[in-house]
Design a protein around this nucleic acid. Sequence first.
DNA 1: CCAGGGCCTCGAAACGTTTCCGGCTGTCCG
DNA 2: CGGACAGCCGGAAACGTTTCGAGGCCCTGG
Lengths: 339, 339
Amino acid sequence: MGRVTLKDVADHVGVNVSTASRALSHDRNSLVSPDTRRRVEDAARELGYRGNLQASALRRGRTGIIGVIVADLNNPFIGPVLRGVANALGGRGLLPIMTESRDSSDELAQICDKMLAQRVDGIITTAGRYGDRALLKRVASEVPTVLAVRQLPGSGIPTIGHDDTVGGRLAAEHLLSLGHTRLAQLMGPEDIWSFEGRANGFRRAVEDAGAMCTDIQAAVRLPTSDAGCQLAERLLGLPGERPTAVFAHNDSIAIGAIDTLRRAGLTCPDDISIVGFNDVPLTDKILPPLTTVRLPGYELGRLAAELVLTRIDGNDGSANTVMLTPELVVRGSTIELGT
Amino acid sequence: MGRVTLKDVADHVGVNVSTASRALSHDRNSLVSPDTRRRVEDAARELGYRGNLQASALRRGRTGIIGVIVADLNNPFIGPVLRGVANALGGRGLLPIMTESRDSSDELAQICDKMLAQRVDGIITTAGRYGDRALLKRVASEVPTVLAVRQLPGSGIPTIGHDDTVGGRLAAEHLLSLGHTRLAQLMGPEDIWSFEGRANGFRRAVEDAGAMCTDIQAAVRLPTSDAGCQLAERLLGLPGERPTAVFAHNDSIAIGAIDTLRRAGLTCPDDISIVGFNDVPLTDKILPPLTTVRLPGYELGRLAAELVLTRIDGNDGSANTVMLTPELVVRGSTIELGT
DNA sequence: CCAGGGCCTCGAAACGTTTCCGGCTGTCCG
DNA sequence: CGGACAGCCGGAAACGTTTCGAGGCCCTGG
């Protein structure tokens, strides 16, 4: 087993354990003579010494572990975000502890407890509903915390976000420019800033242009393709003339909606134009290729990791909140009205 | 900060720290009188005591952390697997540390080092290429390790896998039963058991039936949709009559291939039938809905977590290797020849 | 020749738990 | 009435590091 301890290598060299500790430390090894340092390093390699980070953490008060909480691991958008986090942390020698809250407040609370007990150095969470604000504020008061992807306005917690209002507006302007005047949006779950922002940006832009905006909701917890199916059903059941263009609050919803609409005999984009959100992998490869609002997932994750690191280092002065701007990607799922 | 320590609550109750420890421990609290136990619990709650798992780990030699290594976080198949792992661990109070090796042996080695230094209680890895066998065997000798998804034949490491040979055969039999006689397979990266198994199962079944099987390879590291595009290009460049049916080694490859074939004027399934592998989310919603070989990702993850837990508990006697059987899901991307 | 510094090293005290060991109280039985 | 025994608790030693204070040595300058 990895039983070889620092004392073993110190004894092997004939030196005190404190000296061995300094010799192997990357920042304090100038306090030791080059000769002993080399001898200690050799002995460590020879004996197969592996520092015990638990003991080190106990003494130094730093574990080198960052807690990462995501709402739903099935959401394809989360992959790039996690990669960004993991790679940024790995570059600094830290490791992420990762769990999924399934967007449940109870689970979130339990996870936070466990992570605090593990004495993580910081927490990155993408799982913040409005109802979790108090919990997350409490957590943030105990350990450096940053919100990623989802914002929690008024919480005062540092955030790496993106401008959902602009995103919604981009979608609206695109559809309006194609001549659509009866529009609808397939809404994501409530109590989450991302979807509220998208909804507001979209509705406002549509109404400012004098067009019609119908909000379609369904009682779903997670914004998955199944939710998209349900929302599309409701769209089909709408009284009056059917909207000719739809803004889905994310790509999964869009894909689910396109599918049920197709089953009902409506083809996208000929009968109905659809814009998604996120630009997750594979959306460009499907039929029709999805017009969507792109979010830099990897970058979001990377920046969140870097922000939590600077908070840990105590640089409170640096920017607390970064807002990335979304970008419209036009593909085949939207088409000019009447063509 | 979470500065309140066990000594604080012990002092608050007027009891020794060892007694407080016993009172709060879930298995040893029978050694303390019900009265003091309740008083300690109250004090702990009142003071907001949070056990320091670092210190506990140091003393007990168990950290409660399991290392999880995945090859590629972008692979949509990995989401369900991670969910299975996380949920199974969470039920037992453990937490997963998660990182991505990007299928690089160097990164894998570094990650293993870091995890061993963190003294994880066990490791679950889906990132085993043939070239990593020696490394993983060394790791497995230091800490309970299980392979998930990807097997490493001859390594002797406990494994939760699935029968890729059968999976390949299922794909072949399906296509053969539709009357196809010129078949091809779009191969995943080399040096990985999953893809080799699929390839062998497919080729063997095809050739046993007297049909033609063309293996198409490309120099790609990861089995992504981009790889699917490249492989489809090669398929198009093939001399002689074009295959009428294709087995893609996973769904991403299939989707990439369908897309490039479409750009080249070939539609699936009319001109060419395609079978995928994994049945990742959304494959049933796209056009055409993908015929694929389903793998129980969540179950794989869950079983892997449970296996590593029994190994940690020292039950060497239990089954070392579990092999789940894949299942063919027929959808719209395959069609009878000549219709 | 001596005082004063650098340099290097050592010893010991932490960090917050868990666990072993032993001692105290009270009860029950011979 | 005395001893055994169970139940409960306190003291202290670990777990493996890091860090603080102090001391030994050698070299230099006055």
